[in-house]
Amino acid sequence: MPTDDELLDLLGETLLVRTDGPSPERVASLRAAVAAPPASAPASGRTFTRPEPVGASSARWYRPLALGAAAAAAVAVAFFIGRATVDEGSAVAGGVVEFDGALTAPASDGRATVRVERTGIGRVVTLDTRDLPILPVGEYYELWFVGADDEPLAPQRVSAGTFHPDEDGRSQVTFAAAVDPARFAEISVTAEPAVGNPGPSTTEVLRADIPS
């Protein structure tokens, strides 16, 4: 008859799942989030829990970011309205802007801007949306970097994270993402149903090409 200790040792061996550990992309994403200033704490990465709406509770942390973004936008608006730029090489907030462009909506009035900055340790993606439709409770939006050969049955895309707009359809979120935008053809925002499926839905609400 096994003793308690023997039983617990065997149970420990049994329950310990052998893994290769976290993927390099997930490690890079975490390192980028750690390196990001605490004041602009990143939103959750790929997640399947219902994201918290961006509202009063989150206004505290993104208010300074919004002020900074507003100042930067005032300078950059003449360059960035309706166009995208890649690898301009300009340092912004400690990072190099690799993409800064507008996302447009194929079937709605929604619009958004996305900025991807390469920092010393990873990419920081800032998404600013306006007029997105409010989704039913449990559903959420998801930001993707989409490969050139992406197909519904063979998706080649990387999620940067999920978000909810506020009651006016607006949101401003920052993601830490382990992606090089130059390796993707477009950025896409999809509406995701609350079914727990980690794959992308086919409901694209915003998109932008990434210039090659």
Binding site: V17, R26, S29, L30, V34, S44, T47, F48
Partner: peptide, 23 residues
């Protein structure tokens, strides 16, 4: 993994845990 339906969900849960811990 013992509580969620697939390995991707479990990996996502670990990532989410680390993100929340960082925050």
């Amino acid at each position: 993994r013992r509580r969620l339906p697939h390995t991707v969900a479990a990996d996502d849960a670990v990532s989410e845990t680390m993100t929340r811990a960082l925050n």
